[in-house]
Write a protein that binds this DNA or RNA. Sequence first.
DNA 1: AGCTAAATGCAACTTTGTTGCATTCGCAGC
DNA 2: GCTGCGAATGCAACAAAGTTGCATTTAGCT
Lengths: 153, 153
Amino acid sequence: MLSPLKTPARRGQRLTPARQAILKVLGRSPTPQSPQEILHELKKFKLTINKTTVYRQLESLLSRRLIRAIHLGERSVRYELAHGLAHHHHLVCLDCGKITNIFFPTDLKKQEETIWKKNKFEIFEHSLEFFGRCRTCAEKLKKRPQHKNVPAA
Amino acid sequence: MLSPLKTPARRGQRLTPARQAILKVLGRSPTPQSPQEILHELKKFKLTINKTTVYRQLESLLSRRLIRAIHLGERSVRYELAHGLAHHHHLVCLDCGKITNIFFPTDLKKQEETIWKKNKFEIFEHSLEFFGRCRTCAEKLKKRPQHKNVPAA
DNA sequence: AGCTAAATGCAACTTTGTTGCATTCGCAGC
DNA sequence: GCTGCGAATGCAACAAAGTTGCATTTAGCT
């Protein structure tokens, strides 16, 4: 994360090409994108945007709740449009890294209430991600039984 | 994560001072620790262990399922003993960064079954973390209404 | 005690994200 | 449409976190 901005409240006032392009990239992507991936996508649009700008725009968009940060256990954080999709979670394949969105009602309301009662901890959001092996990798495994990221216990 | 080891299967064969010390640090800590924190703790034991060794041991311990990796939206991954505590989740205060373990039955079995049926995605593990504000920070806020990491929408 | 491969330390390196500062540009007011 | 202000950008240098190659040490076997 970037450190606090000098004038955080004023950020995100202008509709600049960089901001538009980043939103466009995120809008087109079905799954959350890392800063590196965004940078890479921007080049396809023939827009060479400096990485500093990308990081700063992502922070601005995040602080205004236009995008959400997703943590899938990688070095980079991923981002997705906050209002692009209904509330959902992610499946992460530990073999190929593929990310899939899943939509189903996770009724955590009761549990969030319990936490509030027990711990007096006020919950703003939660993160629920599933890690495992996707169908494609499972089929490959049948043919050639070997995989890289999931060593035996 | 480190790239695949040359001989991953053979790692973790010896009981070395470094391995013992890292397990001791994790065993003493109530909440998951980052590599930096582990490194810092080790110094308290008058053990100066190289960061490379720490990263390699953590990977070895992880691959043997002696520890678990926890991702709380920071740059670093955190680790905790795999068998130290029953299955649990975490509360992360966005104001002060405090981490709390919570133990309650999250019945995600049905949902994991649904995912298997629908997506043919085999789940090995899940990650459920709650982000918000702890009691202490909430009380501070009453006195001096200001906080840093949770800008208004 | 000697052997061998696992484990370690070190330095150099890569990747990812950050900061300071000079310059450019969106846009509100004229 | 011009102008001025401050937001936004680019660049280069920096910082933090993690990785690699390789020479050396050491745990655990015989």
